[in-house]
Amino acid sequence: MRLPENLRPDCERCLGLCCAALPFARSADFAFDKMAGAPCPHLTAECRCGIHAELRERGMKGCTVYECFGAGQKLTQVTYKGRSWQDHPEQREEMFAVFTVLQQLHEMLALLTEAGWRAEGLLAEEAAAERERLALLAELAPAELLALAIGPLRVQVGGLLRRVSAEVRARADAGREMSGPPHRRSGAAAARGAAGGKRPGGGGSAAGRDRIGAKLRGADMAGADLRGTLLIAADLRGANLRSADLLGADLRDADLCGADLRGALFLTQPQLNAARGDGAARLPEHLRRPDHWPLA
């Protein structure tokens, strides 16, 4: 399975929108401050990054993490029919505002696409219908896009994704219970509990918890509810995260070397890009190994 082309970034068909519209602050991720709407000094006249091959070395790691889920080329090629924010300064502010709305819609569309893959029956149909509704919203004119109430949309989509997650994780957990010998089943449950994970049918949840720097090497968190969990710089080497819900989990500088993420729910490419890993990490098939991850 792979996300459709319109939900994958294509910088060749965009005009450097993320390099101009978005703000960032001097930090470990960015070498300097930039205000929203101010073009990055590294952005060339052709709307290309002048230091793309050296971003991490030049202190711009944050740029390598960000992805727009195809919103950049959609705004450039469809919403504004090829017009450039450089050539139409009177529309620049509007274009940048619309870009932030489209990016959120496209991210939700990507998550709903995955939900359609993973859910079954009526829940799969509901996910497909919600995806179709948001796809139509993404086709609105700029003024209509700016009038959208994105917050309530995110809440509604989030609730649907939570129900899909519960169904998928329960199904995966039932499969593990049926296939594993009793002594291994009880050991896995204990490991998940120690890691702050959750068996879909009960127990505590690690969702939203602070696990910054946690020592979770080799932990069995299969099927865990890790939605919104702070896993910054956590040691997840060799961890079992199969079918874990990672929606919104903060994986900045988390070590995923050798981790098993196959079937992880609602993990996005930007989350992976923010983490550390290697070629031994096993990923969901619709995601790619980040360029800065070594093969071994």
Rank of each mutant, 00 (worst) to 15 (best):
G193E: 14
P284E: 00
C14W: 01
G223S: 09
P284K: 03
A274W: 08
D33P: 07
L295N: 02
P152D: 11
L236Q: 08
E67I: 00
R118N: 12
H286F: 10
L111N: 09
L105H: 03
M95S: 04
A115N: 12
A239R: 02
N273V: 02
V78C: 14
M178F: 07
R133N: 02
L75E: 08
A254F: 06
L136R: 13
G50F: 08
C47T: 06
I150A: 12
E67W: 03
G277T: 00
K61H: 08
R262I: 02
I232T: 15
G201V: 06
A259N: 03
C63E: 07
R162L: 00
P41T: 03
L17R: 04
E93T: 03
L134P: 09
D29P: 00
A127T: 12
A45E: 15
L43C: 02
F266N: 07
A191G: 10
V65R: 10
H88K: 01
W293P: 01
K61N: 04
V164N: 03
A275Y: 01
G59S: 04
P200W: 15
A147W: 01
G62E: 07
L267I: 01
I232M: 10
V164Y: 00
P284S: 05
A206S: 10
A194F: 04
A38V: 10
C18M: 05
I212Q: 15
C68A: 07
S27M: 12
A207H: 09
E94I: 06
G263R: 14
C257R: 15
R199W: 12
G16I: 01
A53Y: 00
D245L: 10
H106P: 03
E130H: 05
L109E: 14
H106C: 06
P200N: 14
L7S: 04
E139G: 00
G187R: 12
R184E: 15
E67K: 07
L265G: 11
A244C: 09
A296W: 00
L7M: 07
D210S: 11
L267K: 03
C40W: 09
R92Q: 15
R217L: 11
E54H: 13
A190P: 03
D278C: 12
S27D: 12
E90M: 12
Q156H: 14
A222S: 14
E132I: 02
L15W: 05
H286I: 00
D260S: 12
L231V: 03
G196R: 11
C257M: 07
C68W: 08
A274F: 11
L134M: 13
K198W: 06
L251H: 10
I150T: 14
G151W: 14
D173H: 15
G193V: 01
D225C: 05
R242K: 11
H183F: 13
A249S: 11
G59D: 03
Y66M: 11
P294Y: 00
E167S: 14
G263S: 13
A166E: 11
W293V: 08
T100G: 08
E90Y: 06
F24D: 00
R199C: 13
H52Q: 07
D245R: 04
G72F: 01
E126S: 09
C40D: 09
A207Y: 12
R171K: 13
A188S: 05
P142D: 10
R92A: 15
L137E: 02
E125V: 14
H292V: 09
M95H: 02
L283Y: 07
L265P: 09
Q73H: 13
D210K: 13
P41I: 03
L22H: 04
L251R: 10
